[in-house]
Design a protein around this nucleic acid. Structure first.
Lengths: 219, 219
DNA sequence: GACAATCAATTGGTCAGACCAAAATACCGC
DNA sequence: GCGGTATTTTGGTCTGACCAATTGATTGTC
């Protein structure tokens, strides 16, 4: 634990204790340094962290002000030691949101070639035994849908999310029976897409991802 | 834009350009400071940001190492996109999808403080005359909703999209009467949120953004 | 020549103090 | 009181220093 880290913790405690309320100004950097017995540089690094987490806003010549509501803060407070990246819950929510939109767009824009490619990919996946290979194919399946949607911006976003969730997805896919369940969901999505039905496709995708989420929250 | 911020951007460029790969060590702090013509303190603050975003891991006596996939990070995300400019249609679709989800989550998770903050922001916006100032406040309004949703991942994604669409948004807001229309929509969104109604909120947001999209396609 | 112990160079961690610019506050003349 | 200026406060940035952990080279031994 470095000095700026402990300063960060101290500030979190201050806020958590309710000594500091939303919108209120934090003590000046020099005073904080004095209070905590550290250098101003260390205080500044700690404030940087608070800033990049979106917890404070710093105005030159004026001070640093606490922003965001108490609820959002406690989230950070809880996770501050563990993950420095994003919450799994948040990434799951984002992925569900994006995938559902993408599949719905894909249903509207799918072509015969798209259908063929999807079918071929599903058939291919059924033969895969290894978890890692399967996961790659699963990536490919979702990416193909995004390509069919012709929205390359959403495609890039989805890729980002999935890459971030790589570890989690790997964990999920390794659970017994998970591959069969995934295959079943994929077939459902494929059929809805082949019919060109946006709502049905969206629903099929939603069920697919919700099942993963529920798996998670149940653990 | 502060010095550490620009250092941060420069590092992002380095990463985006592919000069730095996952697991690789960044140049030492002293060298970076020399390279960029800034003090080591500023470099350290920038590295702090990278660290708190989970992009690097720093080992004392050894160096800072790039970890995970840098795509997580919104600025980097923006860079990657700008390189191969995206279709406006795609970004609009993405934004609508994300904003609707965010506002729906926000309706579920809103607190009294959130309601007050939203109200205050709306009241404030009514007084604004200048287009640029108004657009900033508009950003703040949507960002506040994202904060209320407590999903910081979606928040980052939305920020990326909006940043990319900055020019377009500026153009839209300058059209005659547009500010009044926007205010009206914002009020509708606010009321739905205050009621804590996810579906109503989603619909209100959808109408808001669809009106922008239709404006666009009609031109 | 291979290997282990030792020493030097590199690198992050931290601090003190200085100066600037923006903002807030105090002060003063009216 | 009021408005404008001067002072103080506060964040922004830099320099240079020293410590501690790590790494890499050097050396000595078998």
């Amino acid at each position: 634990m470095t000095v700026p880290d402990s300063v960060f913790e101290s500030l979190c405690d201050l806020i958590a204790a309710g000594s500091l309320l939303t919108g209120q100004r934090l003590p000046p950097e020099r005073k904080l340094a004095l209070m905590l017995g550290v250098s101003r540089a260390s205080v500044r690094e700690a404030l940087r962290t608070l800033d990049s987490l979106g917890l404070i806003e710093t105005r030159s010549g004026s001070g640093s002000y606490l922003i965001g509501n108490a609820a959002s803060f406690s989230k950070y407070f809880v996770r501050r030691q563990t993950a420095r990246s994003f919450e799994l819950r948040d990434m799951l929510e984002a992925r569900i949101c994006l995938e559902c939109e993408v599949v719905s767009l894909a249903a509207r824009r799918i072509t015969d070639e798209g259908k063929e490619a999807l079918k071929a990919l599903i058939d291919h996946m059924e033969k895969l035994e290894d978890s890692e290979t399967f996961l790659n194919a699963d990536f490919a399946f979702h990416e193909l849908i995004a390509r069919i949607s012709t929205n390359f911006f959403l495609l890039e976003m989805l890729k980002s999310v999935r890459e971030l969730m790589l570890e989690f997805n790997m964990e999920v896919i390794k659970r017994p029976g998970q591959r069969l369940v995934a295959l079943e969901f994929h077939r459902g999505i494929y059929h809805a897409l082949a019919e060109g039905d946006p709502d049905k496709s969206r629903l099929a995708m939603l069920r697919h991802l919700e099942s993963i989420r529920e798996d998670e929250t149940a653990r």
